[in-house]
Design a protein around this nucleic acid. Sequence first.
RNA 1: GCCUUGGUAGCUCAGUCGGUAGAGCAGUAGACUGAAAAUCUACGUGUCGGUGGUUCAAUUCCGCCCCAAGGCA
Length: 301
Amino acid sequence: MIKPLVCALVGPTASGKSAAALAVARALSMEIVSADSMQVYRGMDIGTAKSTQAERALVRHHMIDVADPGQKYTAARFRQEGALAIAEILARGNVPLVVGGTGLYVSALLDGLDFAQAQGGGEERERWEKYLAQNGASALHGQLRERDPKSAEKLHENDTRRVIRALEVYDITGRPIGERASFAQSFYDVRMAGLSLNREQLNLRIDERVDAMMRAGLEAEARALLQKDLQTAAQALGYKELFEVFRGDASLDEAIRHIKTRTRQYAKRQMTWFKRDVRIRWFDALDPHVEAKLMEYFAET
RNA sequence: GCCUUGGUAGCUCAGUCGGUAGAGCAGUAGACUGAAAAUCUACGUGUCGGUGGUUCAAUUCCGCCCCAAGGCA
């Protein structure tokens, strides 16, 4: 069986993924599948650096504006809907280009992480959260060690979020969290490219981009979200720092500085995530011919 | 000009009743399978403003000088 080609372009924020993807997708008859945990939300355009409507008219984009900021969007839902989008693109005879900086979401799509077997956030989760509050992280970790020693060994006891998830999966499936099968990998022929640039250059670009976002009206956009009861969208960089200003807990200058710092830290985490993926072929984001080189790489037969 | 209070890690500061010092933030590296722009882990030598003095020993006590903030003139 011939596996369909699925391309991907990854990299830290502000590395120029969107612009490069647009050029490449136009030239190669591709459709873009955004793999970004915050671009899924409507009404969060400036702060998440979404492609404009004009750009989206040139190339078909997917997985953008698919949820309300008041909703709880998750990796599992993203996997499900994203896989559907890829299937449709392939059916149309086009090549999907997965573009994004959320490592888990990229992985969910390309590696078919199978979240479906163990629904999260149910009564099991509640039970373990209560257990944590009453007995502490160490005891919680001990509970996991009794059930699933292999996962317990990999997780630090303070990483309670993951410890709880591992317990939850074990409760529901009776199996360790790491043992669930990946399947999509066998369905796609994955070709990944990454955009990289040195830290100083990246930091400079981040600073400039945050300033540009402020000029473009990020403050008003954030203020408009204030009435909504944000769930996971409340974690979005740029918004949460401005909320502090609205509440009177910080000055605007402080908030802007904070946004820049937090975005730099985020970019660093993204690089750590992607660095270990050996499938990625890295391209210099500052190379004036990156786009041509990416096209060549993705068009190889 | 005089008085007061400060000058300790990139930043904000703690501390040493004399035995060369430590937190938070920042930074660096890493982890990551239904919150992931989230969450978690590891990593702390800096003429303790300068210079003389007392002392076995001073960042710590004393003198002088420099700088900053406030007060009095």
